[in-house]
């Protein structure tokens, strides 16, 4: 009788519990940031695309005028950070769920974190240092 050649059962690679609340907080963050983003993003889209002629009135002066107010600076800054972290965390869970190999998972996450850091840094830099006097 020939011996059965069955591939070994998928042995769980579950590491010991880390006793950290990171997954709990990231889950909670997704819910809270999602609620805030509904207001922030829909408000943003309404102002940019529908109000007062919508997208046709947007130019450099329009953006400069908005960002002269700390309120809109804060609005755009919180939208940038919440959306980037919300989307980044969502992609992190997608990578965790669907990457087959540890190496793939690692490099995809590095790519994700680097792109998140770049976009957050660039966006924050522009909002904080924006100067409407373009010639000067």
């Amino acid at each position: 009788m020939s011996t059965l050649n069955i591939s070994a059962p998928r042995s769980p690679r579950r590491p010991a519990a880390r006793r950290s609340n990171f997954e709990l907080y990231s889950w909670l963050f997704m819910r809270l940031s999602g609620l805030l983003l509904i207001v922030l993003v829909l408000g943003h889209l309404f102002i940019m695309n529908i109000l007062d002629g919508g997208v046709h009135r947007i130019n450099f002066a329009f953006v400069a005028g908005r960002w002269s107010s700390p309120f809109w600076q804060f609005w755009d800054l919180s939208m940038l950070w919440l959306a980037e972290l919300h989307g980044g965390n969502g992609l992190r869970t997608v990578i965790n769920d669907y990457a087959r190999k540890d190496a793939t998972r690692f490099w995809l996450k590095i790519l994700l974190y680097v792109s998140m850091a770049l976009i957050l840094a660039l966006g924050s830099f522009v909002i904080f240092t924006f100067d409407p006097n373009i010639s000067g």
Partner: peptide
């Protein structure tokens, strides 16, 4: 609850 609080626990439920 500690066991299920980890990355492979309940937070993976979609």
């Amino acid at each position: 609850l500690d066991i299920l609080n980890d990355v492979d626990g309940v937070w993976r439920c979609r």
